[in-house]
Write a protein that binds this DNA or RNA. Structure first.
Lengths: 265, 265
DNA sequence: ATGTAAACCTGATCCAGATCAACTCTTGAC
DNA sequence: GTCAAGAGTTGATCTGGATCAGGTTTACAT
């Protein structure tokens, strides 16, 4: 079994997907995530210009921060492998998870407006991120129309994603929320080239609960329940989806608002 | 009393704020909302270039749509006066409100990613909007760095706002939610030049409840409760905030995550 | 004016999920 | 190895707000 917290790779992966430290230095044009990331739709020489401003730092260990609430904003970050959690800290000490970021997803867009980050971002496991200094990125987007468009698209996607989550949080039952969460993970893993049906959660029950507005006990009970219903096979953090149809059905029952969860054929 | 649904104007308004149909044709450079809107930080001649692509259509009546779910995306819209509600329709017929848009605020950013709108937007009262064709805007942002930056800022603000709402929806009590909602309205009205303490709601109790994840009965009871506590004076849709301190205190009690609600001095 | 639907208010009841509590299983530090 | 802290499970109880049900007021069409 895979103990790294990474999802189980599909068997059809191209050889560039082999995990190695060398991968951390991969140029954008050789990166397996390029079609999900900023380079989407760019010409080769434009990708090289983008590549030249991207900083590839050493991987983060579990618990390391990319930035914290109040830090001044300078860069956006793209997850290359691993998982980033973004969260805000309440004065009473409890934290509120506001997002989980998987490979190919962007972190830090919240800081553009005010120049300060309004949340913190930390690694849930060993995680590699590409750092893109924002002012240099803005110079490039001004001269590469496709890159500008891709930035607008990425930000629009972020807005749509959060809108969907709002609907989930204000209308759905606990069962629907967890189903939507698992499907969202499944769909995202799939689009990044991993198995849609079997993966490891890198976050705790408490973190899932915080994100979904549920108590950790409720999350735990639901995992048990889904297992009894033969919808899932749960072993600690390892999840196997046995009945994808049933999971989708749970969503469409009461709550059809979340059509943005497009089922991969 | 003002029956139009507009907030009560402050007495110190400059004369350009006088409501008239002529205002609908106001060029960006003469528009009172310019410092909240796309022209922020632009040189005069750049404002004129922006102005030349802005379409100022006739005002919308209550109930008119700007766009509906599934419509193809072509423009973003800035509210000039009135209120826009954005919402999604669930298959069972109920609607879920995902946003209220006041003067100076942008509607339609959700459509950029997929080229289709994922929600609908309709006027809650007589409402004027500026339509900005997105492909033409992208041509301008590519040549006006400050405009590009302003677009990134606007989208970042939208992301931050939704993050704050997520926290509100997943952690706070009904009382905290309504307090946060009223303060948000108050702060926004204030920044657009209206009274922070007295305004008319253009949305129904049901719509407020839908937005905040509450039943309309709960919203109604809370208005009564706030009135009993001498925090508000409520007359149907007319709201007068009597005790702003108390309202802020309700937020900070349990939930301090929402610091983005910056109190206007 | 009159009718009708929508918006709103208020009381009574109910339940999904929070909270509290006790326990086991993992994990990592030393 | 041992110990402690964290993560997870499961059961019992409690409660905030949903739901149901009745009413009044407002808005608007005819």
């Amino acid at each position: 079994m895979d103990h790294s917290g990474h999802p189980t790779p599909r068997t059809t992966l191209p050889q560039t997907k082999v995990v190695s430290l060398e991968k951390l230095k991969t140029a954008c044009k050789n990166c397996g995530l390029a079609k999900l990331c900023l380079p989407l739709g760019l010409e080769n020489n434009d990708i090289e210009r983008l590549d030249s401003i991207v900083q590839r730092n050493r991987p983060l260990h579990r618990g390391n921060h990319i930035f914290q609430t109040g830090n001044s904003f300078g860069s956006i970050f793209v997850v290359k492998s691993g998982t980033i959690k973004s969260y805000t800290q309440c004065p009473n000490g409890t934290e509120q998870v506001v997002g989980f970021h998987l490979p190919g997803e962007v972190v830090g867009l919240d800081g553009i407006e005010t120049g300060k980050h309004i949340c913190s971002a930390k690694a849930l496991e060993t995680t590699a991120v590409c750092e893109v200094p924002f002012s240099r990125l803005e110079e490039l987007t001004a001269t590469i129309p496709n890159l500008q468009h891709q930035m607008f698209r990425l930000m629009s996607k972020e807005i749509s994603k959060e809108t969907g989550l709002m609907v989930l949080l204000s209308k759905s039952t606990a069962e629907e929320r967890l189903a939507a969460f698992l499907l969202s993970l499944s769909i995202r893993f799939h689009s990044y080239g991993f198995s849609a049906t079997e993966f490891n959660l890198s976050m705790s029950r408490r973190e899932i609960g915080s994100y979904l507005g549920l108590a950790l006990e409720t999350v735990s009970r639901l995992f048990t329940h889904f297992q009894e219903e033969k919808i899932l096979e749960v072993d600690r953090k390892h999840i196997k989806i046995l009945d994808m149809d049933q999971l989708f059905k749970l969503l469409s029952e009461q709550n059809g608002c979340l059509d943005q969860l497009q089922r991969p054929r």
